[in-house]
Structures are given as C-alpha cells and as structure tokens.
C-alpha cells in the first residue's frame, strides 16, 4: 500500500506493545502473524507499530496488506459491488486468495516475490518486487487476514464500524467517500469479519486491551 495515512494514538501503541510480548514468546523462524478487524479498527496502525517494535528487537518484519489483493479495480469496485448486490459479493470472495497464499509461501521459502501494491493516491495497482530472504516475519493485515493459511498467530480486533462511526463520516484519511452504499458495505463486511472471531488467538477488545483466548 502506497501513500496510506495512519492515525496512530496511545491505545495503538499500548496494544502493539502487548502483542509484541506474545510474538517474542512464540517466536519462530519465518513466523506469520495476521491481524483482522473491521474497517477503521486500527489494523494498519497496529501492523506498522508492531513491525517497528520488532525491528528494535532486530527482527525484520514486513507488512502484507490484503487490501492490495482485491480482484476488482479500485476505481470500479463500488459500482461493481452495487451492480452485483452488496450482500451477495462483499466478503472474502473479492480477494485473490491464491495470490495471497503464493506470497505467504514465497516468504516462508525466502524467495523473491512479486505482489500487488495499491497506490492510494493514483488508485492504480502497482507491482512490488521484494526479496523475502532477509525478512524474518510477515504481518498480514486485512479484514479477513486471519482466514489465510499458514498463520502462526491470529489477532482479532473487536471494535466494530459502529463504534468507529465518526472516523468513517469524517473521511480524514481520504480513503473513501461516505454514502448509503458505503454504510451497506461496512454492514456486510461487519457480518463477514465477525464470523472469523472464533479463529483468533488474541483478541483486542473494545477498550483496546489485548486478551489471550484460552
């Protein structure tokens, strides 16, 4: 993802610190961490902070945003969703999971890899070529990231779009314009994301406290 704007707050920092401890405890070679949560729940912020903290521990972590893997073009997605019916198409099926799994596999096998990379300014999909040889950990973040195969630690943020409503209407990130269709999309994503909660190893509750799932 190019030209994303993050809004990092103290609660993100505290949660990233807590997750770091679990990661270090369970540390393994070529570890894959996944962070799922609804739009506006803070996935990108947590991913960024966790990767930065890991770097301090001399662990090289690379973020992998699943939003780069939509099969529809960013500029045509909304129209496509509306024409097909939001409740019919919004969900995991919109992502190129074969490519996500290929890139995760490239990471695990320390290969040179080519992956999609959305530029949020031009709204074009560029291609990013990276060498995973020197990358120790992968942090997969996205609505349905914990559904990916081969994930070692699954983090789920419980905050819903209704609780971050203000963020969506303000559009301070300039990501997407708010209208009725957008609310319907968020509602549908909400259903799909919440269904993944039982997969989580760690939950970040609505107070942004990190809780281990027994």
């Amino acid at each position: 993802m190019l030209n994303d704007i993050l809004l990092i707050t103290e609660k993100h920092k505290a949660a990233a610190d807590a997750i770091l401890n679990y990661v270090l405890e369970q540390r393994k070679d070529k570890m894959v961490i996944a962070i799922s949560g609804e739009s506006g729940s803070g996935k990108s912020e947590l991913t960024y902070l966790l990767a930065k903290l890991l770097r301090r521990e001399k662990i090289f972590a690379k973020p992998l945003h699943t939003d780069n893997y939509y099969m529809t073009d960013p500029l045509k997605r909304k129209e496509w969703r509306i024409s097909r019916g939001i409740e019919n198409v919004v969900g995991y099926g919109e992502y190129d999971w074969a490519m996500i799994h290929k890139n995760i596999d490239d990471f695990k096998h320390s290969r040179r890899s080519e992956m999609p990379c959305v530029d949020l300014v031009t709204e074009q999909v560029d291609q990013l070529i990276t060498d995973f040889k020197t990358v120790d950990m992968l942090i997969v973040d996205g609505l349905y990231a914990i559904k990916a195969e081969g994930v070692d630690l699954k983090v789920f943020i419980e905050l819903t779009y209704l609780e971050t409503k203000e963020k969506h209407t303000k559009d301070s990130r300039g990501k997407e314009v708010m209208d009725e269709a957008r609310w319907d999309i968020l509602g549908q994503e909400h259903k799909m994301v919440q269904a993944l909660k039982p997969l989580a190893d760690l939950l970040i509750n609505t107070d942004y406290q990190v809780v281990e799932v027994k």
């Binding site: 770097r55 690379k62 990379c117 560029d126 291609q127 990013l128």
Partner: peptide, 20 residues
C-alpha cells in the same frame, strides 16, 4: 526502487505511467 522504511531494504516497484 522503493525503500521499505520498516525493514530498511530496497524493493522494486513496477508502475504503469499510462493515465498518470
């Protein structure tokens, strides 16, 4: 070239300037 400021490594970015 495209630097990843987290890892410090240099990736390569392929972009199409058509329409830019």
């Amino acid at each position: 070239p495209c630097v990843d400021l987290i890892t410090g490594y240099v990736d390569e970015l392929r972009t199409n300037f058509e329409g830019v």
